[in-house]
């Protein structure tokens, strides 16, 4: 395991995370993560999508040095997670799945404690903590004990704690687990702010499809400890077979199938009665072209619809299952239920 840090090849930026054949097994048997390899580029939001027990949290724990990998290796921010664990810890921010703040302390005191654990001088950490509390809109509650916080406030506090050490890379483990729709939207807003305004790289895990879809630049679908597929949300969805346009035409003659299939984006045209069912890439661009062809032949369009494949379908196609809550080990489920219960408090 040589150290891969400096000396990046010309013209190609070194990925901020590089993982090769990373695996974790417990008691030499149960394989929680079974040889995953991937890279995360600086500045992107990278998501691990999969059901409970797929190996998401185990991977994040290995990348943040909380678990020692059984085999393979991972370079995070230029440091080996096993051999240079403290350097990794200093460079990354972590927002764990559980609520870890001390309930008997105020929000501000919690952040300052985090700062102390990073060895940041109080002269810096005090103004910085207040700045971060402003960012997550907790400035009014900063002197209240955390036990009085709502689930959403706790989640935001965890986020602020994860940012106290000026990380280049932020790990978010199930950032919106158990949150209501409104709070979830707020958390998404902060994540976007971090990416867009602070140019932070974000690695998140989730089992909510819409979360992966709306936040991530790239998604790795993980199942049974394996990465099934990596791609942008659009690529994953297109892998299912592209968009579907259904066009209704008033006239039965002439048959337009031949002409429609000449549009370069169209893959397949099926006609049933007066309706044409068209499978295509980039449905938004193909639709006006198809309309033009039909009209230029003097025909009338009676209806038109564009359906985009969802990540659900992509997930189903890749894993053969729908994404749903699954029984994993009792302890993990219980801890997750506790988190969800506290999120709603």
């Amino acid at each position: 395991m040589e150290m891969i840090t400096e000396g990046t090849p010309m013209g190609r930026a070194e990925p901020i995370i590089r993982v090769e054949n990373l695996a974790k097994s417990y008691d030499g048997k149960t394989k929680a993560v079974d040889g995953v390899s991937f890279e995360v580029k600086e500045g992107e939001v990278f998501g691990f999508l999969g059901p409970n027990g797929a190996g998401k949290s185990t991977t994040i724990k290995m990348l943040t040095t909380l678990l020692v990998p059984s085999s393979g290796h991972a370079i995070v921010c230029g440091y080996d997670v096993h051999k240079q664990a403290n350097d990794v810890r200093r460079s990354v921010g972590i927002v764990p799945q559980d609520y870890t703040a001390d309930e008997d302390m105020t929000g501000l005191a919690n952040i300052l404690l985090c700062a102390d654990l990073y060895g940041l001088p109080r002269s810096d950490s005090k103004p910085h903590a207040e700045e971060l509390l402003n960012l997550v809109e907790l400035q009014d509650a900063q002197n209240r004990k955390v036990k009085t916080y709502s689930g959403g406030m706790r989640r935001r506090l965890e986020l602020a704690c994860g940012l106290i050490n000026y990380p280049r890379l932020l790990f978010l483990d199930e950032p919106t687990l158990g949150l209501d729709v409104q709070t979830r939207a707020a958390v998404w807003k902060y994540i976007r702010t971090l990416k867009e305004e602070y140019r932070m790289t974000i690695f998140l895990t989730t089992h909510y499809l819409e979360e992966a879809d709306s936040l991530c630049d790239r998604i790795a679908i993980i199942d049974h400890g394996h990465i099934v597929k990596i791609g942008t949300p659009t690529q994953l969805k297109e892998g299912v077979g592209g968009d579907v346009i259904v066009v209704g035409v008033k006239e039965t003659e002439p048959d337009m199938s031949e002409q429609i299939s000449k549009v370069s984006l169209v893959r397949e045209v099926k006609r049933t009665g007066n309706d044409y069912r068209i499978k295509t890439e980039l449905g938004e661009e193909a639709t006006p072209q198809i309309m033009d062809i039909i009209r230029s032949n003097g025909l009338h369009v009676t209806k038109i619809s564009l359906t985009k494949p969802t990540l659900d379908e992509a997930y189903l196609e890749l894993t053969g299952r729908t994404l749903r809550e699954e029984e994993t080990n009792r302890w993990a489920m219980m801890s997750q239920r506790v988190t969800m219960a506290r999120a709603r408090s």
């Binding site: 972590i94 764990p96 559980d98 609520y99």
Partner: peptide, 10 residues
């Protein structure tokens, strides 16, 4: 979870 938080810091 506090222990894990502490352990994820240097």
């Amino acid at each position: 979870g506090f222990l894990n938080k502490a352990l994820s810091t240097p």
